[in-house]
Design a protein around this nucleic acid. Structure first.
Length: 467
RNA sequence: GGCGGGGUAGCCAAGUGGUAAGGCACGGCUCUGCAAAAGCUGCAUUCGUCGGUUCGAUUCCGACCCUCGCCUCCA
């Protein structure tokens, strides 16, 4: 069975086939963060989704070239740079570093390329020049350069590929201040914004005068520079369909005359505690907020990966607690397998691998994939309890798990080393138990618990676990 | 107003024209001196409401109710 993915262009699930004649290399671009603040849990859903797509492609045997841009010049950034009396690079560098830290905390594989908009100004200018040359872009009286939807359509190009739009119904003036722009038509969008005093030091020289790129052009310029004028996959949050992605298509196809992207994927948003995330509701979380509550990146990752990417997902703290418990079950099972065998060098057990792979190939049916994992955990636990799992079978089970985890990216629980003080207390309890002084043994157990360590007795001896 | 998602157990969440995966929580049991965030096990006559098609509908069709998102800041 081959990988099938929803394609926003077709509005249906389609077999995924790369452009590469060898059917091996895949070019994939995901709209990355705008670095004006710490990324929130909603942003992370999209980036973890992108990581899942990339890992699923790799699982299917593709050689993925994964590109994620960093938007480091944009209205909000410029305003904050001005307010904080700092420089663009100093300001964005801080949030870019935080983003990378968080990305790794969530076990996301680092994209192969992470181009910054400000490092591609030349490519952006060149692309705008091509659009002007083809008569699709024009410079307005204010010096800004705009993309003309009308001219673009006049070339036989299709604007509105990702969703149905009714331009007559657009309510002009409600969300676009009409006096802000000197565009010929409301739907036109800025490619190059002419320098204004408020921009401070944030501007670049260009054939169209000093200024800075518009919001959409950077993604066209960077994706085509790194992946070519046509490439396989483009991802982003569902809100980016319009205008951002629609405009990317227009800019790119308008300039090259070639199809831009074959396959578009959009991740749905999430709610937090059933409501749209907002600072005033107190349900606005960054990853850092959740780590500060004692959760780990892998727990957050598990929760973000618990629902299908095209469904709105309700992120809750209770759910996160549940993710913690669910993960502990997997850890326990995998840990026991490792006690039986140190080796995963065996034929992966099909009982886990096959249902997992079919679920994944079916437009990333992650819920069914997790079901395959938990079914396997239960069966494996039974066999371990019955002592009917020889080392070779355990190695096959581990091999299957490692293959599956190459997609889920849950990894192993990091085993905290047991501090000497804790080990000493545990030994003291064992002595007390031997002496049948259960009162003292239980007191030590309670004390350990209050110190964050739980004792797990088993026929084979005692285990210490960090809570 | 235009366009598009959803409503499945206490919570989260898959799925199918043929009788409801999985996780969390909860109950029972096993292990245990007692326990455990350890293991097993139980847990929806029912899928928003009302009609229709069908031998059969949660699944298809229609109407309605509720809810969420996008419509030039947005993951």
């Amino acid at each position: 069975m081959a990988l099938k993915l929803f394609n926003t262009l077709e509005r249906s699930v389609q077999p995924f086939t790369p452009m590469d004649p060898w059917q091996k290399r895949v070019g994939m671009y995901c709209c990355g963060p705008t670095v004006y603040d710490f990324a929130h849990i909603g942003n992370w859903r999209t980036f973890v989704f992108a990581d899942l797509v990339r890992r699923a492609l790799e699982f299917s045997g593709y050689d993925v070239n994964h590109v994620m841009n960093i938007t480091d010049v944009e209205d909000k950034i410029i305003r904050k740079v001005r307010d904080n009396k700092t420089t663009l690079r100093a300001f964005t560098g801080r949030f870019e570093a935080a983003f990378l830290e968080d990305l790794q905390a969530l076990h996301c594989r680092l994209p192969h390329h992470m181009p910054r908009a400000t490092d591609y100004i030349a490519e952006i200018i060149d692309l705008i020049g091509r659009l002007i040359h083809r008569g699709i872009a024009y410079q307005a009286a204010d010096g800004s350069v705009y993309f003309s939807i009308e001219k673009y359509r006049g070339c036989g190009c299709n604007y509105g590929q990702l969703l149905k739009l009714n331009f007559d119904g657009l309510r002009v003036g409600e969300r676009v201040s009409a006096d802000e722009y000197e565009k010929e038509s409301v739907a036109d969008f800025a490619l190059w914004k002419a320098r204004v005093a408020e921009d401070g030091e944030v501007f670049w020289g260009s054939p169209f005068g000093e200024g800075r790129p518009g919001w959409h052009i950077e993604c066209s310029a960077m994706s085509m520079k790194v992946l070519g004028e046509s490439f396989d996959l483009h991802l982003g949050g569902e809100d980016l369909k319009f205008p951002h992605h629609e405009d990317e298509i227009a800019q790119s196809e308008g300039a090259t005359g070639k199809p831009f992207v074959r396959h578009w994927l959009h991740g749905a948003h999430l709610l937090v505690e059933g409501k749209k995330m907002s600072k005033s509701l107190g349900n606005f979380f960054t990853l850092r907020d959740l780590l500060a509550k004692g959760f780990t990146g892998r727990e957050v990752r598990h929760l973000l990966l618990s629902a299908h990417y095209r469904e709105t997902f309700n992120f809750t703290l209770d759910g996160l607690q549940g993710a913690k418990s669910a993960l502990a079950r997997i850890d326990e099972c995998v840990g026991k397998l490792r006690e039986i065998t140190r080796s995963a060098a065996a034929v992966p057990e099909p009982a886990l691998l096959e249902p997992f792979a079919s679920a994944l190939e079916d437009d990333l049916n992650i819920s069914a994939a997790w079901a395959a994992v938990f079914d396997w955990v239960r069966e494996t636990n039974k066999r371990i309890a019955e002592n009917s799992l020889p080392p070779l079978a355990a190695a096959g089970a581990l091999a299957a798990w490692e293959r599956v985890d190459s997609v889920l990216g849950i990894g192993c629980k990091s085993e905290a080393p047991v501090p000497a003080e804790i080990a000493a207390l545990a030994a003291e309890r064992t002595e007390a138990k031997k002496a049948r002084d259960f009162q003292r043994a239980d007191a030590i157990r309670d004390r350990l618990k209050s110190m964050g360590w739980v004792i797990e007795d088993s026929p084979k001896g005692l285990k210490l676990k960090k809570i």
